[in-house]
Computed example of a mutant assay.
Amino acid sequence: MVTRVRTVLGDIPAEDLGVCDAHDHLFLRTPLLPGQELDDPGRAQELLRGFHGLGGRSVVQWTPYGMGRRPGDLVALSCSTGVEVVAATGLHQAAHYPEELLGRILPELEALFVRELTEGIGGTGVRAGLIKVAGSFHGIDAHARLTMAAAAGAHHRTGAPIAVHLELGTGALDVLDLLCGELGVDPGCVVLGHLGRFPDGVVQREAARAGAFLAFDGPSRANHATDWRLPEQLAELADAGFGGRLLLGGDTTVPGTPGMPHLLRRLRPRLEQALGKDLLHSVLVTAPARAFAFAAPREGPRP
């Protein structure tokens, strides 16, 4: 059976993702970052071309519903640069949205996610290939529980993978208890983001042992344990047998951060020296192809 990833240009065989930035943003808008919006298609094209010129072939954009996804521009950028782009549905933490918007969409959240995965985002016909949700600091608040339940329901109906923002890298095991324990999502369909920001090796190993994918993202942020701890963390997880569960992303959220080319220009040589070519190929190519592939939708009643 050929596994497939849903890009903004349509479904492709998972192995065609190639070298993948597993978590990034071409466009992003939130009231929590006023004046720091990512909304420049020209700059996005420049980053994608730089990424492609270094061998990058795909970018998974985690920008969810209501945060400035610009699906039409994603299509144009993918066509002009040759980089496959995966768009997201889903919902971030409540603080990123006005209360009146949440009041309108929360009652039909699962249906909204399914519609954006199967029909398109905002009537554009550009389909999402990922469900993005978010935990809270060291746990799961009521909003996160609601959005994760909707994400699980949409996953069971469509097979779409679920990506989770872990607040400051915390709460990974609580998320897995809810999504995979209570809500019946296969851990292999869950990507946990920001684990490098709270570099607890015990939690990282437990999450990998459960079967989830671990995304190390957000390089060159001075207030997070990112670049300088990254080779050590990945090597420790690989030595523990979890090399096939590791992903790498840039998570560009504001203008002025290094962006997608940085992953390949600066981090790739460093990681190749620390990890070896085979493991780095898994991190950049093999693991993303598995992590972002659609699973078979569940038949029959859900848990």
Rank of each mutant, 00 (worst) to 15 (best):
M1G: 14
V2Y: 01
R4H: 13
P13G: 04
L17T: 06
C20K: 08
A22F: 13
H25K: 11
F27V: 05
R29H: 09
R29I: 02
P31A: 11
Q36W: 12
Q36T: 00
E37I: 04
D40V: 09
D40E: 10
P41L: 13
A44G: 10
G50F: 15
H52M: 13
L54M: 06
G56W: 13
R57M: 08
T63L: 05
Y65P: 00
R70K: 13
R70E: 11
P71Y: 02
D73N: 05
L74C: 02
C79E: 15
S80G: 04
T81V: 03
G82R: 01
V83P: 00
E84Q: 14
V86N: 01
A87T: 02
A88L: 07
G90F: 02
L91Q: 11
L91W: 02
H96C: 12
P98K: 07
E99Y: 01
E99I: 02
L101I: 08
L101G: 03
L101H: 12
L101S: 01
L109E: 12
E110D: 12
A111M: 01
E116A: 08
L117E: 07
T124W: 06
G125E: 08
V126D: 06
R127N: 01
I131T: 02
K132W: 03
I140H: 00
D141F: 03
H143Y: 05
L146A: 08
A154Y: 03
H156A: 06
T158E: 08
G159D: 08
G159P: 07
A160C: 09
A160W: 00
A160V: 11
I162W: 06
E167R: 13
T170I: 04
G171C: 05
A172F: 04
A172K: 05
D177V: 05
L178W: 09
C180I: 06
G181P: 00
L183V: 01
L183M: 03
G184M: 09
C189I: 00
G193E: 10
G196F: 05
P199R: 14
G201Y: 14
Q204W: 10
A212R: 05
D217L: 00
G218D: 08
S220F: 08
R221M: 12
H224K: 12
A225D: 09
T226F: 07
D227G: 08
R229P: 00
R229E: 13
L230G: 08
E232K: 12
L234D: 09
L234T: 06
L234G: 10
L234H: 11
E236W: 04
A238M: 08
G241D: 06
G244S: 15
L246N: 09
L246V: 04
T253G: 02
G256W: 05
G259H: 11
H262Q: 09
R266N: 13
L267V: 03
P269L: 10
R270P: 03
E272T: 12
G276V: 04
L280I: 01
S282E: 14
V285K: 02
V285W: 13
V285Y: 14
R290D: 07
A293D: 07
A293F: 13
P297K: 08
R298E: 10
R298Q: 11
E299C: 12
E299K: 08
G300A: 09
R302F: 10
R302I: 07
P303V: 04
